[in-house]
Amino acid sequence: MITSRREFLAASASVVTMRGFSLDPREPDLVVPLWPEGKMPGGPAPKMVETIDDQVDNAGLRYRVAVHVTRPTMSYFAAASPTGAAVLIIPGGGYSRVGIDREGFETARWLNSLGIAAFVLRYRLPADRWGGRSDVALQDAQRAMRLIRFGGSGQWKVDPQRVSVLGGSAGGHLAGCLCTKVYERTYPAIDAADHLLTRPDGAVLLYPVISMSGNTSGGTRTALIGPDPTPQQLAAWSLEVNLPPITPPVLLIHAVRDRVVPVDQSLILFGAIRASGGPIDMHLFEEGSHGVGLRADPAQPIADWPQIARRWHVRNNLA
């Protein structure tokens, strides 16, 4: 039993080391702008300044969050012994901010330890009222998937048929959109990369927002489609409503006692994909917090999700 803050910090450091990253983590090997100058869709852009809120959490770990994103990017982390697999990581933030360290860079370093190239997406936020409001985050996610498959002009060695996505919370919703909105072109092609597929080869969704109807998490729905959405908007952004004929393999991970995004959200998608005959795995934990990334309390069973995800990646030839 952990009985003091010192023991808690020591335990946290131990968990951090086990998960494949350190308290003094490396930054990305490369930060790639998603769009050529003057070619970014979804305008007009709101008048705002992109900022980074740089804090430290209760365990002494860095906790950066980007707000008012105006220059969407993906941060590339190269694996020392690459297997050819890659993961696009989409951190959460309720579509009003986007995480950097927790659910982002830390997950990337863990994937690198498995030989998987990792790309952390910093996407535009619909809450900022872009001209293309609800579409801007999906535009960035689709563009990122295409750039990963395009290969970065040889900068990274990635098998274009082994690119999966991992997203948490609202980032899980955006990752799910890549799986379900596979036939939607949200922007006109601007170069050769835009002729490649946006559908991932698999998806790990952590405590995701799924449906815009009913018991939706906090302000995520408002940030994405506004305070008074039409029935058409609700349906368009509810992942369970319009599943394509073929979905990629999906792994859902959720805590039953999640107080931010109800576990019913994962259950909805599990039921829809199962009914459609698609490949779906789900792991539910009685206890566990929301948005933990790799920082879960080791006493909570949800802290074991990386091992579950690793086995799932191996089984689906994505590791």
Rank of each mutant, 00 (worst) to 15 (best):
Gly172Cys: 08
Ala175Leu: 06
Asp201Lys: 14
Ser169Tyr: 01
Arg185Ile: 09
Pro200His: 12
Val165Gly: 07
Gly171Cys: 03
Cys177Lys: 05
Leu178Arg: 03
Val163Ser: 11
Arg199Gly: 12
His195Val: 13
Leu196Cys: 12
Ser169Asn: 03
Asp201Glu: 14
Ala193Pro: 09
Thr180Trp: 04
Gly172Met: 02
Thr180His: 09
Cys177Tyr: 03
Gly167Trp: 04
Leu178His: 10
Ala203Tyr: 08
Asp191Phe: 09
His195Thr: 14
Val158Phe: 10
Asp159Gly: 10
His195Met: 14
Pro200Ser: 13
Cys177Phe: 02
Ala175Arg: 06
Gln161Trp: 10
Ala203Gln: 07
Ala203Lys: 09
Gly176Lys: 02
Leu178Tyr: 08
Gly172Tyr: 01
Ala203Trp: 06
Tyr183Asn: 15
Val165Glu: 08
Lys181Asn: 06
Val204Glu: 00
Pro160Phe: 11
Asp159Met: 10
Gly168Ala: 14
Leu178Lys: 11
Gly202Ser: 11
Arg185Trp: 05
Arg185Pro: 04
Ala170Gln: 06
Ala193Thr: 07
Val165Ser: 05
Leu178Asn: 07
Leu166Arg: 02
Ile190Asp: 05
Gly168Phe: 02
Thr180Lys: 05
Arg199His: 13
Ala170His: 01
Val163Leu: 04
Ser169Ala: 01
Leu174Arg: 02
Ser164Leu: 11
Ala203Glu: 08
Pro160Tyr: 11
Ile190Trp: 00
Ser164Arg: 01
Gly168Arg: 01
Arg199Trp: 14
Gly171Phe: 05
Asp159Glu: 10
Lys181Met: 13
Arg185Tyr: 09
Asp191Ser: 07
Ala170Cys: 03
Asp194Met: 09
Ser164Tyr: 05
Leu196His: 08
Arg162Gln: 10
Gly202Leu: 05
His195Asn: 08
Ile190Gln: 11
Ile190Lys: 05
Ala192Asp: 14
Thr180Asn: 10
Pro200Phe: 07
Pro160Ser: 14
Pro200Val: 07
Arg185Glu: 13
Val204Trp: 00
Cys177Thr: 14
Ala170Asp: 01
Gly171Ile: 04
Lys181Tyr: 06
Ala170Leu: 03
His173Ser: 01
Asp191Met: 02
Val165Arg: 09
Tyr187Met: 04
Lys181Ile: 01
His173Ile: 00
Ala175Val: 02
Ile190Pro: 03
Gln161Asn: 15
Val182Asn: 09
Ser164His: 05
Val165Asn: 10
Gly172Asp: 04
Lys181Leu: 11
Gly167Tyr: 06
Ser169Gln: 00
Cys179Thr: 12
Gly167Ala: 02
Leu197Asp: 15
Val182Trp: 07
Pro188His: 12
Leu174Cys: 01
Gly171Ala: 00
Ala192Asn: 05
Tyr183Lys: 14
Pro160His: 13
Asp201Tyr: 12
Ser169Glu: 01
Thr198Arg: 04
Arg199Val: 14
Ile190His: 06
Gly202Phe: 11
Gln161Lys: 15
Arg162Tyr: 12
Leu166Phe: 03
Lys181Ser: 12
Val158Trp: 06
Val163Glu: 08
Cys177Gly: 08
Val204Ile: 15
His195Gln: 13
Lys181Pro: 00
His173Glu: 01
